[in-house]
Design a protein around this nucleic acid. Structure first.
Lengths: 342, 342
DNA sequence: CTGAAAGCGCTTACAG
DNA sequence: CTGAAAGCGCTTACAG
């Protein structure tokens, strides 16, 4: 069995290629200080025997593992799994592995938990999607422990090498513009909780379009909800009961859009005939529900890839050209939930 | 910063408690061969200093990491994330960490990939949900590499210590019984692909209930689809076009049930008035779509916990009492998609 | 550009 | 029940 046949080590490679293990180590670690001929000779032996350095031994010597953590509190399974795939797309073939660390920001001990986790496992780096990425105190603790990080966020909170930015306001603007183009003038927005930066950004993009189309802002048409199905349904019910109800609703995420569907259903209001709806996220439900939901999509998998690449790339203090910010724009997916106003 | 204050090691604990490091090691590893007084003394020092053994160093010495892998090809994000939570529920507080290994069973190299992953990282154990759990060849390779495993499956494929069993047939029976009790006699079943064991089990439970209620089996009412939305919609369309169409459809999973919704919608057939539908899985969509889908729910999170517990428990060859199989039964969630036949 | 020695923080036979 | 020594497979100053 495989475990009984002794694993090949750096010593074997050193002996076989007639150099010291230190030189093999240098080759493995891409040290510039090794003669080209020597490097080639060692590489040949390494490849011939399919040698890969033992991650545990390296971790012990380097005092840092090859573990990348995804620290998240995002409640959407779709988001989590898609980002995970993106991260793994780039970790594949490297010696890095992905460990999952779901957290609950409402817990008092969560920062301590993460810190202990990062220290004990000597995590190489952490990737944080929203809303964990917005917790400056946590980031400071993690960085203080010598662990790298990359934050995915809708606003710039960090240096370029630690940031993947998403243009949420642009996505919201696309949604609002689509509605305005269809002729809607009374457009409501059910926004997410104020504690999430994304909800501000999406509101901001929405408002910009109103200005763009000369639509007067009616503050009664902007309601806050909790990014959940139930709160979305609640706010929608309120909107639909107004004496002068909106002809279109843009919600801060798909979950709330589904709540709008539910409220409309109960009120006997047809989508899109009587009411247009646009969501945000493009969750799987969007293309399953009837009528199919028009929504805004962020390239989650690509964002995961970008985050992983930033995290594991060489970080030379002597970088000459400053790194630009990596950013992603959402795209509007027009389906069947939008139509001209009645 | 934390990383600069030297981490406390086994040597510190040994010195502080006046014993050798070997004895500390014994205490850490729950060796029986240490005097009670000595153990207490050492434990006190350990707790006082919040010492935890370095996972990397242990891994190197033991030639095995404290990494648990979840190897999966299940396409449902909900399933994956929920099981992940269950696994983490029991890993929390231990030194084990969870690494994710999504695979594609259709790839030729996937078994080799997993094997290399398991060997290189010296994975402690792997948890495999369906359908990966049904791949005997993969399991043999993983076991041959000295890596433990626990399979989650709808049929018994392994010993009790390696198995978490689900009673899929029972869940299907509950669904069919619910329909029969409502008065349905022409009940169709859209089953999943033959290559999945679960699809056989669910079909089996379905058939048992027909016998139980003296309903003659009409083979034209049992169709195979691909566990997907589109194939479900396709089969449903065929069923609804029959001269004597079914009054109820039980599908092998929720995705296909949503396909049925879609087909019914297009055919102008109302759910549940004209057609009752029951799914399987209780995905988030089930309680978002209108009418809310009646479906069968497996306790995924509990299953994940059970799998993790089996995996990390002591495995004494000298076990006296044989371990019983750990198994889980699904429960029917009755919502709004079922009613008496028209 | 290359090597001998020491060290990372644990565990494992082997003695006693 | 307890300890001294060697080893797991790497990397890191330090020399040369």
């Amino acid at each position: 069995m495989s475990r009984s046949k002794r694993k090949i080590t750096i010593n074997d490679i050193a002996r076989l290629s007639g150099v010291s293990k230190k030189t093999v180590s240098r080759v493995i670690n891409d040290s510039p200080k090794v003669r080209e001929r020597t490097r080639e000779k060692v590489m040949a032996v390494i490849e011939e025997h399919g040698y890969t350095p033992d991650p545990q031994a390296r971790a012990l010597a380097l005092r840092r593992s090859s573990l990348i953590a995804m620290v998240y509190d995002n409640p959407s399974p779709q988001y989590v799994v898609t980002m995970l795939r993106g991260i793994l797309d780039v970790l594949e073939g490297t010696s890095f592995q992905l460990v999952m660390k779901p957290v609950d920001r409402r817990s008092d001990s969560y920062r301590q938990d993460v810190l202990r986790f990062v220290e004990q496992q000597r995590i190489f780096g952490a990737i944080m999607p929203p809303s964990v990425s917005e917790d400056q105190e946590l980031i400071d603790m993690v960085a203080g422990a010598g662990c790298r990080h990359v934050r995915i966020a809708s606003v710039v909170l960090d240096t370029p090498e630690n940031t993947v930015k998403t243009h949420d306001s642009d996505g919201a603007a696309q949604a609002a513009r689509h509605l305005a183009e269809l002729g809607h003038r009374r457009i409501a927005h059910i926004r997410g909780p104020k504690m999430f930066r994304s909800s501000h950004e999406r509101l901001r993009g929405f408002k910009e379009v109103l200005v763009e189309y000369g639509i007067k802002l009616d503050s009664k048409l902007i309601l806050e909800a909790g990014y959940t199905f139930d709160t979305g349904a609640q706010r929608a019910t309120e909107l639909l009961r107004m004496k002068n109800p909106p002809t279109a609703i843009f919600t801060g995420n798909d979950e709330m859009a589904l709540g709008v569907y539910n409220a409309a259903q109960k009120a006997g209001i047809r989508i899109p005939d009587d009411l247009s709806v646009v969501g945000f996220d493009d969750t799987p439900i969007a293309s399953r529900i009837w009528p199919n939901l028009s929504t805004v999509r962020l390239p989650i998998r690509e964002m995961g890839k970008a985050a992983a690449e930033l995290l594991i790339r060489d970080r030379q203090p002597a970088r000459s050209s400053p790194l630009p910010y990596v950013s992603f724009s959402p795209s509007l997916v027009v389906r069947k939930s939008t139509a001209p106003p009645p």
